[in-house]
Amino acid sequence: MSQHSHSHDDSVEMARHHHIHADLPPDPALRVKALESLLTDKGLVDPATIDAWVETYESRIGPRNGAKVVAKAWVDPDYKQRLLSDATTAIAELDLLGSQGQHMVALENTPGIHNLVVCTLCSCYPLPLLGLPPTWYKSAPYRSRAVLDPRGVLREFGLDLPEHVKIRVWDSTAEVRYLVLPERPAGTEHLNEAQLATLVTRNAMIGVAKVTA
């Protein structure tokens, strides 16, 4: 009897499961496999080109690029001025421009102003400088709340900003891409540009963290 009710529960559970999933597309891993093999078959994509794209974002384009820009601005006041007045040209000097990076604006954090970047409508992000965006940046909680409750969002990232600080949120609604220039941390006077670059994090360049020494 107990055996019977157990299998009855299982079948109810399975029916519910099927009902929920009947309407959903199948496993994305299988869909991708089918699409890649179809497109390869039709000559619409070359698998070796996909390999190269994945490899580029896994190892060649990432936040280290943005960190170079920030560290240079910290040690070179002329460069910092150029970066703040025309970031596109200043970043191009370092040969770091590319996808979605053509119209760059650098936003300087100061003791009185804190900048925070979001894309509420999709997931626009300065790809050439920071690589692919992290999952949280693309998620509904961040996209919905960064504009409405930036102080609450920053507290969730461990950053409790004083009342007197102005928070400027930048919603990336066009092809302009924003890079936050964080404050240089105290006690780093002895570090050179390359050493400084190792301190600069992706989150600091989005504006959800400060750089710490």
Partner: peptide, 26 residues
């Protein structure tokens, strides 16, 4: 918001394939 520690660009191989297809296909 749920940040992940040391998040890599792709969580699973298929994510990189999907990203690559939509970037480099004809």
């Amino acid at each position: 918001i749920a940040p992940e520690r040391d998040e890599s660009p792709f969580h699973e191989t298929w994510e990189g394939r999907a990203g690559g297809i939509l970037e480099v296909m004809t």
